[in-house]
Design a protein around this nucleic acid. Structure first.
Lengths: 299, 299
DNA sequence: CTTGTTTTCGAATGATATTTCTATTTTTTG
DNA sequence: CAAAAAATAGAAATATCATTCGAAAACAAG
């Protein structure tokens, strides 16, 4: 919004060397010209001909993924979200031939002006010619339906209790197999990244039973299981239950054998689509659990 | 963007009369409260219960008709386009109970992001009756946004080519680590359940490099990778590339080092929310890939 | 391991945007 | 028609922003 707004180059007598060096680093030397539209910028970025160092690459990725935030925010806000210094953004803009960030930002603003999110119907899908695309759309629909369903009916009390149990635990065992494994794998990864010690019971080397044999009453088990409940998960959770650990469960019906073993459980229904099941809802709930647990422990 | 940001009223001894006069002009006296969302503002404006003098009415009309310009512009630009003084805009905002124009403008910005209430400062975190639930809703929103984004812009040609490559392969190697691992784990499971022989390169026992060392030109690699691209995945894919296998990739930007190694690649952008990323979109695309592959082979 | 280069950081600086305040104009009312 | 009240425009003040620049750090080459 601020800034000089005056053209960049001003080759006075003795600053020729500096100007030359700068220009050699700009894209002009590579035959590029300043992008006039957002699409042009995207094209240049995706061409892959420009190789950025770490921070600038970080900027490029952020711009690529969050154009609307770039358009709406100030340089400080954008820089904070992208995890770089404000000056880095200015450098980035100048490499592309812009006077500064404000100039650069106008690209994003212009792009956005046309697209005010007026509540459009959007469901005008008429007879998909492509079968694969049809399936993809169905999958997307199923995912969104499952997600909406969480928002509508959600057992907040159970959710909070689960977080409390997990937050109080000394060590968290994450258990889930087959279809639930992607969920537990992501949960375990996220927990570790957040500094929460946990054990992913993945049954590599068939060591799962021995692992859960180490559970103590101070531990908690986060189990995820979907129907059909014919995996090893119920057995493992049963052992944990015998060893008096707190058990919290994410499952998809009250008929799950895990329900009667659990201290608290949460129902998350994934809608089946053509024999495939999206895990979107379970993952969202799982992430929320981790977030709640972390804020409970740190805050 | 700028401004004091301090509360408006300061009832000193002798300015009581002025303060009282000002308050009588605000909508608070009429039983209105400060609109929290753009929709609320629109409702108030359209209710017709407030009668504005000429210039303020002019402002209201402009806001109604050009919301995106209000969100993107500075106060000076908006004022010029609406044909009023900047101070008039400030007055208008204050009548509605905002500290100033910037505060007021955030309504429009938030609306444009289609976003959940901004997570800034952390002051409002405590105000939220249930912060955990708030996060869950945000996560759901991010998931759904990512899913919608697929539907809007999707490279069908690349998608079809990927399916063709995979369908033609003798054996499919599925590679992905860290955040991408849940996706590859699910892909591998689903492929196996559908009778498609595949190898999940999970690096258990650090055997990943040896595994990809067995790849032949008749095989295909299905790689999944998200930023930051600092995992082992690029190295593994590079080996596969040397061994002349077909390589198809799901990634989240063109900056992925996998892009130049791949025969075909697909961009799937997962929207970040509070440092967490839902995998809903990637999973949906992955499932669609598997489905397309299976129907190609059997049908 | 050293040297030269590139890249990044962070504070200082210059510029702009936002707000407040006051004089002037317009409207309302007795 | 006159006087008071309200509304507006414009200028001045102030907070915030964007940019620049020098030093430190990371990196690459010899």
């Amino acid at each position: 919004m601020s800034g000089r707004g005056k053209a960049a180059d001003e080759p006075s007598t003795h600053s020729l060397e500096t100007a030359a060096r700068k220009r050699s680093r700009s894209l002009a030397a590579l035959g590029y010209t300043k992008p006039q539209t957002y699409e042009e910028l995207r094209a240049v970025l995706s061409s892959g001909t420009v190789h950025f160092p770490k921070r600038l690459r970080q900027v490029a990725i952020y711009l690529w993924q969050n154009p609307s935030d770039v358009a709406l925010g100030t340089i400080a806000q954008v820089a904070a979200q992208a995890g770089v210094q404000p000056s880095t953004l200015v450098r980035f803009a100048q490499i592309f031939g812009f006077a500064g960030f404000s100039d650069f930002q106008n690209l994003f603003k212009d792009r956005m002006k046309g697209s005010w999110p007026e509540t459009k119907g959007g469901q005008e899908k008429t007879a998909e010619p492509n079968a694969d695309l049809h399936f993809l759309n169905g999958m997307i629909g199923a995912s969104q339906a499952a997600l909406s369903r969480i928002g509508n009916s959600f057992d907040i009390a159970a959710f909070e209790t689960m977080i409390a149990h997990l937050a109080a635990a000394e060590l968290i065992y994450v258990i889930g197999s087959k279809r639930a494994f992607p969920v537990t794998a992501y949960l375990s990864l996220t927990l570790s990244q957040q500094g929460v010690r946990n054990v992913l019971v993945d049954n590599v080397g068939s060591s799962a039973l021995d692992q859960v044999g180490c559970i103590t009453p101070a531990d908690a088990v986060l189990a995820v299981s979907f129907s059909p409940y014919n995996s090893i998960t119920p057995d493992l959770v049963a052992v944990a239950h015998e060893r008096k650990a707190r058990i919290v469960t994410i499952t998809d019906s009250t008929f799950s054998p895990l329900v009667r073993l659990s201290d608290t459980w949460l129902e998350v229904v994934e809608q089946d689509f053509g024999g495939f099941r999206p895990l979107a809802a379970s993952l969202a709930v799982g992430m929320a659990l981790v977030h709640g647990l972390v804020s409970r422990r740190t805050g």
